[in-house]
Amino acid sequence: MSTITYREACRQAIRAALQADPRCFVMGEDVGRYGGCYGVTKGLLEEFGPQRIRDTPLAENGIAGAGVGAALAGLRPIVEIMTCNFSLLALDQIMNNAASLAHMSGGQFAVPLVIRMATGGGRQLAAQHSHSLEGWYAHIPGLKVLVPATVEDARHMLAAALADPNPVLIFEHIVLYNAEGELDEAVSAVDIEHAKVRRSGTDISLVTYGNSLPKCLAAADELATAGIQAEVIDLRVLRPLDSATVIASVRRTHRCLIVDEGWRSGSISAEIAARVADEALYELDAPLRRVCSAEVPVPYAAHMEAAALPQVADIVAAARALVSPAG
């Protein structure tokens, strides 16, 4: 066991991928000389050289398109999009090409592209750099959408993503980069198919992902002091969604609170709620409920930003209301 930051785990993952496979390379804005906007690729240019750590122009559609082309041609590109809001400029390549070509070619072409993006709010980056768009991307068939929330997933999901013949998007939460966690050296790989129970409980399932995971775990600690045993599910993968793990948890707890930093309307949280209602209605002993971000562009001012994003107190209050409304 060693303690490591999430950022360092991401960097180790990229380094290991570059070492393991000569077809693998990194490209993106400021990934080389500057070391990445969030410092993830710091030092890699010196270690692997400019052929494999490539700084690109500020042109996301071009970067993503080059990534699709490289993947089609047999390489294993790791594209970094600085923050997920910029990925909107690359949406045409991601959705119309990366996600579609395998289907349009009848399986003749695979697009083994990995795109890493920073996501989420909480660092006062205001309305244009604080989005949580992973739920949007989870709407698109042909993509896989990963949301690592632990150092272990940050360290090992990349290898699984590169091994997958489909385009895979990895959303790294900007608040998590500085988070520290224990990395078990005995673990050498993780799957990118299943959600995980991060804490067992009997009274309510808190279903979440990304930076809302530590918030839910903190909320579960607080709920435990009030005698409420919350089970915390880390989705890990938003597409394909592992509903079976969620449903199994709801069958144990009979209550479900979904915590999602995305906006509520039309969100992945709505999709999860719909699946629970569909597959486990008769297991529910309380309404399905969600804690999501306020439906506003994320504010800049710290107190307003905090008010707009899901917080531990919101999760605790919502869970208590579902479990023991009188108390």
Binding site: Y282, L284, A286, P287, A321, P325
Partner: peptide, 27 residues
């Protein structure tokens, strides 16, 4: 009544009328 409670009541043969006004859940 929650869906789970409704189903449980049915399994146990508990008349729903006997439960009216005895809810301790949300609302």
């Amino acid at each position: 009544i929650s869906p789970a409670a409704r189903q449980r009541a049915q399994q146990l043969g508990v008349e729903l009328a006997a439960l009216a006004g005895r809810g301790t859940g949300e609302g």
